[in-house]
Design a protein around this nucleic acid. Structure first.
Length: 211
DNA sequence: ATATCGATTATCT
DNA sequence: GATAATCGATATG
C-alpha cells in the first residue's frame, strides 16, 4: 500500500447508523476509512489502519467502566461523536462514540496513513521530513495522530464526526482492506488478553513496528 | 537492537 | 499518593 491520494471532496461522511452498533463491529469496519480535518482552507486526511474497541460498562479496561462522569460523558451519548481524553500528562487521544444514546462504547483511533496535508502534520508534530521513513513519526500512534491533526479536548471533545460542517469527520472513499488482524489492546492492565485491537497487517503505519 | 525512564495532569483511592 | 488507552530521549549491548 503506497502513500495515498485524497483529492478534496472524495468520499462522503460516514453516517450515524454506522456508529450505532457494537464497538467491535464498528472498529473492524473503520479500518480503511479516512479521518479528515478541514479548517481554514487547510486539508488534513489519513487512512485509519489501527483501532481498538472499548465496550460498555462491562469492559474493565474501558473508561466507561466506572459509569458516566464529566470526563467520559460523550461515550454514553449519541453515536458518531468525538471522545477526546488527555493521558500521561502529555497526549490527547481520539475515540468515536458507538452504540445508541444511553449505551456506552467507543473505538480508539490508534494510527493513520497520511494522505493529505503531510507538510502541515510535520509542522504540528515538530518533525523534519528528511525521508519517507519520517512519515511514520506523523501519525503512527494515538498521541501522535492527535498532535498531527491538532486534536485537543477543549477544541474537539463532543464534536459530531458525521457532520462535515464540524471540520472533523470520517469519510468513506471506497477503499476496502484485504486483510485484518486482531491482537490484544495496548497499554492496559485489565482485560489485557481480549483481542480487541484491529490492524491492517500489510500497512507500515501501524504503531509499534520498527522505524 | 532492546530497555528504562521522565514528562505532566486528570481521575480515582 | 498512585495510576494511566503515550511518546521520545537516553543508555546500553
Amino acid at each position: 500500500m503506497k502513500p495515498g491520494h485524497f483529492p478534496e471532496g472524495t468520499g462522503g461522511a460516514v453516517g450515524r447508523d454506522f456508529f450505532a452498533r457494537d464497538p467491535r463491529r464498528v472498529a473492524r469496519e473503520l479500518l480503511g476509512k479516512v479521518l479528515v480535518r478541514r479548517e481554514g482552507g487547510e486539508l488534513l486526511a489519513g487512512r485509519i489502519v489501527e483501532v481498538e474497541a472499548y465496550l460498555g460498562t462491562g469492559d474493565p479496561a474501558a473508561h466507561a467502566a466506572a459509569g458516566p462522569t464529566p470526563r467520559n460523558s460523550v461515550i454514553f451519548g449519541p453515536p458518531g461523536h468525538a471522545y477526546v481524553y488527555f493521558i500521561y500528562g502529555n497526549h490527547y487521544c481520539l475515540n468515536v462514540s458507538c452504540q445508541p444514546g444511553g449505551t456506552a462504547g467507543c473505538v480508539l483511533i490508534r494510527a493513520l496513513e497520511p494522505l493529505a496535508g503531510v507538510q502541515a502534520m510535520a509542522r504540528a508534530r515538530g518533525v523534519a521530513l528528511k525521508g519517507l521513513r519520517d512519515l511514520r513519526k506523523l501519525t503512527s500512534g494515538p498521541g501522535r495522530l492527535a498532535e498531527a491533526f491538532g486534536i485537543t479536548r477543549p477544541r474537539d471533545n463532543g464534536k459530531d464526526l458525521t457532520n462535515r460542517a464540524a471540520g472533523l469527520w470520517i469519510a468513506d472513499d471506497g477503499f476496502r482492506p484485504r486483510r485484518i488482524h486482531t491482537t490484544p489492546r495496548i497499554g492496559i492492565r485489565k482485560a489485557a488478553e481480549r483481542q480487541l485491537r484491529y490492524i491492517l497487517p500489510d500497512n507500515s503505519f501501524v504503531s509499534g513496528k520498527k522505524l
